[in-house]
Design a protein around this nucleic acid. Structure first.
Length: 254
DNA sequence: AACACATGCAACCGCATAATT
DNA sequence: TAATTATGCGGTTGCATGTGT
C-alpha cells in the first residue's frame, strides 16, 4: 500500500503554530468536537495537514493538559512504567492523563534518562523490574484510560502552559463557559484536581491504587487489574516511592 | 560582548494499524 | 477479501534559549 504522506501536499504550512491558527482550530473543535481531522483543514481554511491539527490539539490545546514541572511521583511512575513497557509512551501517558505522550517522551529523553544513568548502580541493586513470566507484558493496559475516561484538571495556569498557549487558555475559558456542547464535552474534565494530590486522586478514582472506601466494580464495568496495576498497587507500592526519593536526591545532587 | 556549545521542546516524518469502501 | 483512507504512535529533527568560555 503506497500513498503519499498527507504533509507532502503543496501549500501545507509547517513549523510553529500561531495563536491565530490555534484559535481557528479550537473554535472548530468547539463546534464539532475532536476527531474527523481530515476535514479540519478543508473546513477551516487552515493550511495545515490533518496530522498537524490532531497533534496540536492533543498535545497543547486540549483541555486538562498539565505542562512542565513533573512531580517526583510522576517521575517515579514514568520510570516504573518505562521499565516495564519500554518506550510505549502512549500507554504510559494513559496512566498520567494530564500528560501527553509527547511530553512524557521528551521528558524521558531529556531528563529521566540522564537521571537514571546517574542512579543506575542504585537501581540495579535495589530494584528488580519484573519483566519475566511473573509479570508478562499486558497489552490491555493501554485500554485503562480511554476517551471515555474523565480527565482530571483543567488547570491552564500560565506556569504550566507554555508560550502562546496563554492566549488560548483565555479563549478556552470563554469556550467552556459559553458553549453548552463543549461544556458537555469537557464537564468531566473540569473537576478541580489542581491540588498536590491530584494525581493520587485520579489513581484512586481509576482504581490504580487501592482504596477501601471505593467499592470494587464488577468485571463488566471495570476490567480486572492488569499485572502492572497489581504490581503497582500491591507488591511494589514502595517502589515508586523509592524512585521518587531517588529522583529527588538526583535533583538535589544536580 | 560575542561566540560556541549544550539543552529542551515543539513539530515533523514514516510506519503500523484500524476503519471504511 | 482486497484496496484505500484515516488515525495513532514512536523516533527524530530543527530551532530557540540557556550556559560556559
Amino acid at each position: 500500500m503506497v500513498r503519499s504522506p498527507c504533509c507532502d501536499k503543496v501549500g501545507v504550512k509547517k513549523g510553529p503554530w500561531t495563536p491565530e491558527e490555534d484559535i481557528i482550530l479550537v473554535s472548530y473543535i468547539q463546534e464539532h468536537g475532536p476527531g474527523n481531522w481530515r476535514s479540519i483543514p478543508t473546513n477551516t481554511g487552515l493550511m495545515r495537514c490533518s496530522k498537524s491539527c490532531r497533534l496540536r490539539w492533543t498535545n497543547y490545546l486540549r483541555l486538562g493538559i498539565k505542562r512542565g514541572n513533573f512531580t517526583p511521583r510522576e517521575e517515579g511512575i514514568i520510570i516504573h512504567l518505562q521499565a516495564m513497557l519500554g518506550n510505549k509512551w502512549a500507554a504510559i501517558a494513559s496512566y498520567l492523563p494530564q500528560r501527553t505522550d509527547n511530553d512524557i517522551k521528551n521528558y524521558w529523553n531529556t531528563h529521566l534518562k540522564k537521571k537514571l544513568k546517574k542512579l543506575q548502580p542504585t537501581i540495579g541493586h535495589n530494584y528488580t523490574i519484573p519483566l519475566d513470566s511473573t509479570f508478562p507484558r499486558h497489552d490491555n493496559m493501554q485500554e485503562k484510560v480511554t476517551e471515555n475516561t474523565p480527565l482530571p484538571n483543567l488547570c491552564l495556569h500560565p506556569s504550566t502552559y507554555a508560550s502562546s498557549a496563554e492566549n488560548i487558555s483565555k479563549l478556552l475559558e470563554g469556550w467552556t463557559r459559553s458553549s453548552s456542547k463543549s461544556t458537555e464535552f469537557t464537564r468531566d474534565m473540569q473537576s478541580d484536581l489542581s491540588n498536590q494530590d491530584e494525581l493520587d486522586s485520579f489513581l484512586l478514582s481509576e482504581n490504580l491504587v487501592g482504596d477501601e472506601r471505593k467499592p470494587s466494580m464488577d468485571s463488566e464495568e471495570h476490567p480486572p487489574f492488569s499485572y502492572l496495576e497489581k504490581w503497582l498497587l500491591e507488591e511494589n507500592s514502595g517502589s515508586i516511592e523509592g524512585l521518587m526519593e531517588m529522583s529527588s536526591s538526583a535533583n538535589s545532587a544536580t
